[in-house]
Design a protein around this nucleic acid. Structure first.
Lengths: 146, 146
DNA sequence: TATTGTTATACTCTATAACTATA
DNA sequence: TATAGTTATAGAGTATAACAATA
């Protein structure tokens, strides 16, 4: 990515956000793509599998919400996951229009492998001092788990 | 996104990385998409425009590297940016195989607007205490600007 | 012979709108 | 009438391979 064009004063939060963006663009995106390729999944398929909870079936529309996309997109993504035996569509019990997505045992295992592969922090974080790592974790917890 | 399936002990850096991932998936991705739509650009087109430096022409192949994709993909992305008058292809001076990408004044202005729109930190960061914001910024600087 | 960028191909993703089957 | 999911369609992104021009 190019150097910021405006080297003017930014708020600390804005600068931190920019750096997080950079970390993600440089390391997160590449790693995500590499892992998806390794398991022969497309990035949206990986996001879908990660958004599903193996212990709690989810309606198609909720998955669409989690992926920030239209219901119609989810049809194709789930089709391909179902073709590979990773998820199944079960008719809803209360409302027969709804289809609940169930992660198969095979899907749950693959999902765990994905999580393990994506969990390792990228080099810039791994090289921080243990104290910085703990502080970073604590601040991120306060931000997202207030 | 579903709750982490393995609620086991993680290293602080791994947990921080997971939280950063979550922040990005929940806020960054949506914001990015909204800004792209606002300016009638696709996400890859926004990434391309942001990867270009208005003051320093870049070869097509370098842009492909910055976007982590194949050269052949860049052809189409740049075609569409060029159709909108945001960038131009200039033949390289030293090696006539190379095409240098130049951001037009119109492209530079749009690029600045994109940056401004994407700069504002999402709510979870904005709501941190000023001290936490500074600490977060300092740690991210140490991680990425050692 | 190797490299830059383009073209060709096939597949996936995305948004929109029209459709179905339920409610 | 309204909603969940599908289908149809068009445009865009992606990887691979083959190609032209240049080195």
């Amino acid at each position: 990515m190019a150097t910021p064009d405006t080297v003017r004063r930014q708020s600390p939060a804005a600068e931190a956000w920019g750096l997080i963006h950079e970390l993600f663009a440089t390391y997160g995106k590449r790693r995500f793509h590499a892992v998806a390729t390794e398991f022969e999944l497309s990035p949206p398929q990986v996001m879908a599998l990660r958004a599903l909870d193996p212990s709690k079936p989810l309606p198609m529309s909720s998955l669409a919400g989690a992926l920030h996309c239209d219901n119609s997109n989810v049809t194709g993504i789930v089709d391909r996951l179902e073709d590979r035996g990773l998820v199944e569509r079960h008719s809803g019990e209360h409302d027969r229009r709804v289809k609940m997505l169930v992660v198969t045992p095979k899907g749950a295992e693959l999902r765990a492998q994905l999580s393990a592969a994506l969990e390792h922090p990228p080099e810039p974080l791994a090289k921080l001092s243990p104290e910085d790592q703990r502080t970073l974790r604590d601040i991120m917890r306060r931000a997202l788990r207030p």
